[in-house]
């Protein structure tokens, strides 16, 4: 589904991501964890070309991602951000329909119907006409998820989706992600271990731009093989 080959991202002389090769299969839910500055967000943002990798190649369905086909390939990729990044001057419905109607040329009535269905599925049908500033954090993030789903993506990228939320709202996001599980490939960057444990099939642990562990969920939490991963788990153990 997605193949990364020797991805490097350099800022000045420092590597944020160094020589990473990975395969993500279809309908898999992957959590990339690690402390801040470990390069996990940078790696995620390379996948949909928000950041251009310094070297290395990205293949999506065996097609190489370039700046030319970026737009077409990235339609298959939805993205959810830490700070939601909803458009504050548009209401919830317009936030969902703006891009499909204006950028992709889809019909208004079909698009609106689809948006309403999605919002209903995520428990937001009362909020169609609300503006982002009138929503709670959890609602905003669910709207952001709906917005990313409007193009029927095969891949969803989540960049720290729970970091800006209160702990009691995180279960909203867990539920939302569970709704999508096994229907698309989801790559979730998070430093929230308990969250990662609950939603993922596979855990990738990164530190200093390198992958230190890449295991199935069960394997990672029951017998972490890498020393760094063990340390990390022990350090955050009391927070989870």
């Amino acid at each position: 589904m997605i193949r990364l080959e020797k991805i490097c991202k350099k800022y000045n002389e420092n590597y944020a991501v160094k020589d990473i090769s990975l395969n993500f299969s279809a309908n898999e839910t992957i959590c990339i964890i690690g402390s801040s500055g470990s390069g996990k967000s940078t790696l995620l943002r390379c996948i949909n070309h928000l950041e251009e990798a310094t070297s290395g190649q990205i293949f999506i369905n065996n097609e190489r991602l370039t700046s030319k086909n970026r737009k077409r390939l990235c339609l298959k990729i939805g993205m959810v951000f830490q700070n939601f990044n909803l458009f504050p001057h548009l209401n919830v419905l317009d936030n969902l329909t703006y891009s499909p109607i204006n950028a992709l040329g889809m019909k208004r009535n079909i698009t609106e119907l689809k948006a309403k269905e999605l919002l209903e599925r995520f428990g937001l049908s009362q909020k169609l006409a609300s503006f982002p500033k009138d929503l709670s954090g959890g609602q905003k993030q669910r709207v952001a998820i709906c917005r990313a789903l409007m193009t029927d993506p095969e891949i969803m990228l989540f960049d720290e989706p729970t970091s800006a939320l209160d702990p009691e709202i995180i279960k909203d996001i867990i539920e939302a992600i569970s709704l999508l599980k096994a229907q698309m490939t989801m790559i979730i960057v998070t430093h929230h271990i308990k969250f990662a444990k609950l939603v993922s099939d596979r855990i990738i642990f990164m530190d200093h731009g390198l992958i230190l562990a890449d295991h199935s969920n069960k394997e990672f939490f029951e017998k972490p093989r890498s020393h760094r991963a063990r340390l990390f788990l022990e350090n955050v153990g009391d927070l989870t």
Binding site: C74, M79, N85, Y98, S99
Partner: peptide, 11 residues
């Protein structure tokens, strides 16, 4: 983030 969201949505 607004620029990034727009880019990610293909606008």
């Amino acid at each position: 983030g607004q620029f990034e969201a727009a880019k990610a949505l293909g606008i």
